[in-house]
Design a binder for these strands. Sequence first.
DNA 1: TCATTACGGATATACGGTATCCTTAAGGAT
DNA 2: ATCCTTAAGGATACCGTATATCCGTAATGA
Lengths: 165, 165
Amino acid sequence: MQLRGPVEWALHCCAVLAGLAPDRYLPTRDLADFHGVPKEYLSKALQALSQAGIVEGTLGPAGGYRLTRAPDRITFLDVVEAVEGRAPTFVCTNIRRNFPCLTATEKSQCTEARPCAVARVMWQADRAWRDSLRSVRLSDLLKTLSTDLSPGLQRRAAAWLDEHS
Amino acid sequence: MQLRGPVEWALHCCAVLAGLAPDRYLPTRDLADFHGVPKEYLSKALQALSQAGIVEGTLGPAGGYRLTRAPDRITFLDVVEAVEGRAPTFVCTNIRRNFPCLTATEKSQCTEARPCAVARVMWQADRAWRDSLRSVRLSDLLKTLSTDLSPGLQRRAAAWLDEHS
DNA sequence: TCATTACGGATATACGGTATCCTTAAGGAT
DNA sequence: ATCCTTAAGGATACCGTATATCCGTAATGA
Ligand code: SF4
Ligand code: SF4
């Protein structure tokens, strides 16, 4: 069970986009260069964000991506689910149905609508994970970053993004 | 990001073992037959549980596995971590170090000891997930099962396990 | 002694993640 | 009107890991 590269990239890209001037578009190439990740592959993650309605892209020169709404209306869960999907981490293969001592009627009751105790516990934990991610917004990340990063670095990063427009 | 078969099997096996008479050993073959899963593969999950000290195996005829301690001292997290490992779900590849505007000293400060804001949020969610799993014990599962399952099915399951000794 | 069992190494296979390439359509600049 | 740039998305090759099986070994009780 592991989250992979694209999720991390997407989160960092959103952080960069959130710090940009409003209405400013940033192309995939710049985001890829800035993070040092393959452009074509990062593009897939950005497309996922676009399909989820978190960012929107525009074509042509001076095109690229920007956020569709304010950073305080985008949660970590939004980004993670956009890239990683909304499938629950625990998948029930319905082992129950294999029990050798089931009657036909009991076997027919083993449906998705009646999940067993094990699945309920695992899904509750899944919900706790998602609730935690939902409780942090992109604006919170920006605030943390502004205290974590030195003013000099923040200025240099902004300058780098400016000259690559 | 997905939990796979062996975790589900391990949880169900623990539930069965918890319902057994104390000091009774149940071999891998019976556990595999009861759940309808491949015996050799299930064996790997049981070995993981054994290494984690949740179950213990004994050799020879009438051998098999049993729990090492009472069901109220085994949590879901114990079982999940034994099979799935203790690695955090979010792996930080240290993208920061690729930022084009870092000085040498800043780059050297990007260590595991100083995780960035993104990683901290993801790990907090990971902790929430584990806390949720830790809060449910095997004894809780048994209690739920005893009310969920019909008395007839419980009797039949116990009988099946008895005649396969 | 013998059958049975856990244990762990080795191995084969399948699947999904990783990464790249290419085509298409659309927007802006000239 | 034309050209360049860019998102969008399909196709594909590659690789690693998960899945699954097999076998040898040691230990245990009958
Ligand atoms: S987790 Fe529950 S629902 Fe899923 S297979 Fe196991 S018993 Fe059935
Ligand atoms: S998550 Fe944070 S620590 Fe991990 S790579 Fe991204 S910036 Fe660095």
